[in-house]
Structures are given as C-alpha cells and as structure tokens.
Design a protein around this nucleic acid. Structure first.
Lengths: 155, 155
DNA sequence: CTCAGTGCAAAGTCTTTGCACGATT
DNA sequence: AATCGTGCAAAGACTTTGCACTGAG
C-alpha cells in the first residue's frame, strides 16, 4: 500500500470521526472550521494555537484566534487531536490519527523532541491500570534529558 | 528503622541538598523561604502555589504570593520538587524527596490521582533513552481514564 | 426561520517582573 | 556595606467569554 493511499484513508477516517461527532451534537460545518481543521492536519508535530492560526490566516485573514481556540478544543474533545503540555505555558495539539501512538523524549537544552513507541511499555501500562481497576483512555509519557548533541556540547 | 527516623533522615537530606544549592549560588536564607519550604514539605501530594500560599499565610499573612512562586521555582530548580502539569492550567509541585519515584493514574471524571511505581517500565524507559543517545534526567508518565468508582457510576 | 458559530474586545487565570524598601551575609 | 530577597502592583502570556452579527441547516 502506497503512502498516498494511506493518507487518503486517514483523511476519510478523520472526516468520518468528525462527521459522526458533529452530527451527534448538532454542530455545524463552517468555512472557518473546515479551514482550521485542514490546516491543522496538513502539518505534523506539536502545534500551538498561535502556529495554526498563522497558517490559517494565510488563506483567510478574517479568521479570529478565538475560533481557532474553539476549534482545536473541538478536535481534542472529538479525539482527533491530543492536547499536550510540555512545560512552556502553552497547549500544543498533535494529530491523533494517521500515526501510531507514541511517546516523547524531550531535550531540556535544545528542546528537540524525539518520538518513540514501545509496545512493551504500553503493555505494562495496561497491566498497571488493570491492577488499579482503571479503564485507561489515554496516556502520556515524557522523558526529559539531554540529547546526544547537547551532551557533547556541555561536556 | 521507624518511620520517625526516616522522616528525620529526609529532612536532613532536604536541608543538605538545599543548603548546597543555595551556597553554590549565593542565595540567602530568609524567614519567608524557610516558612514556605517547611509548609510545602509538611504536605504530600500535588500542591498548587495557591494552596501552599494559603497554608503559609496562616503562619504569616505578610508573605506575598510572588515569593511563593519564586520559592517553588527555586525548589524545582534545586531538584527538591517536581513541577507538574495535569491539564488544568496550573502548575503543581510535588516533593521529590522522601518517596520513590512514581507515576500517576488520573481519573478524568473525579480527578482522583493514584500513584504507582513500576520498575520494569522504568527499566524500559532507560533502554529507550539509551537507544536514542539520550541522558534522561527526569520523566513523567500519566495514564488518564476512569477509575473504578467512576466506571460504575457511568455504566 | 432558528440556533449555532464567529469576530471582537473585554475579562479571566496563572505567572512573571520592575521597583523601592528590607533583610542577610 | 553590598547584595540578594520581598511586597506590591503592574504587566505578560495564554485562554475564555459576552454580545451582537452572520450563516448553516
């Protein structure tokens, strides 16, 4: 299966999830929402509202930042995006569709973020949750430290 | 070894760490700092600045919240406390001495927080970090979901 | 036609900071 | 005495919200 096919499939998944979510609550589909959502999913990574807004404005300068805040919250509540807090005082959103779940290695010196996934850790997390009677819906794991490059620089 | 002994030992550890840190940077020991630090370490859990301030004020109403902010940041930088972000827009501090490292199960319904530790997960984290050339200094792992009680209520 | 969505600016939170005064080394 | 610390209020950063207008269903 080509990457292109995968992307189209992701697009459809996202559209379906979103349509379902919006239909359930009587939410309307507007020019602004469509633009914001498309813009968000066009980029990878951990996007702040400000960043999404900047790119949205290139297409339509009339969109207000308040609408971006509202729409990102919508995406987060619908499960299409995850809200993250890496310690700077800013919420960052990450697309929740189209890639496997993963966690983060964060360099405290250069702020580089490396993503990784590890099934054994996930399995252990589930086991821990079960032991405590929890039904886990999401999780985050972040390892902070110095990346290879910054270790070299500081030594 | 009695619990009492352990606590005394923790107090000494903390005092030593803090003294060393402050000496290294020429920081002064003041009435406010001592009170804030004692107050913080008297309680367990994940304390917001506002909460610490409230308890500090019972002893000395003249202490300003700005000083509490500054002191908590100091504790965090000295490694005696960890700053956490659980998603409400508030930094919470947790004592870093006197208990093992642990992670969190967070109920998204009642906000209950359960702590757990799992050595195998920690070991796997180290392995992942090593694979990426990272030197990890700290980490956090949070599992979000419904606790046993809230599952029962919502079903 | 109705109700949700949007833009705007105002208000809210949490946190940081400039400055003059006070305390510690 | 020299600095660092503190209190206060102002400023900042990010986010939410009230309201009147717009637009989707």
């Amino acid at each position: 299966m080509s990457h292109e096919h995968e992307h189209h499939k992701d697009d459809r998944d996202r559209q379906a999830t979103l349509d379902k979510y919006m239909a359930e609550r009587g939410l309307k589909s507007t020019r602004q929402r469509a633009l914001i959502i498309d813009t968000f999913f066009e980029s990878d990574g951990h996007q702040s509202v400000e960043e999404v807004w900047a790119r949205v404005r290139k297409n339509d300068a009339r969109v207000s930042v308040a609408t971006v805040y509202r729409t990102m919250k919508l995406l987060s509540e619908s499960g299409l995006a995850h809200a993250r807090n890496f310690g700077d005082g800013q919420t960052r959103y990450e697309a929740a569709i189209g890639k496997h779940h993963h966690d983060h290695l964060i360099c405290t010196s250069c702020n580089k973020i490396i993503e990784f996934e590890n099934d054994r850790i996930e399995a252990l997390q589930d086991a821990v949750a079960k032991k405590h009677g929890f039904r886990v819906t999401s999780h985050k794991m972040e390892l902070y430290g110095l990346c290879r490059d910054c270790q070299r620089l500081s030594s």
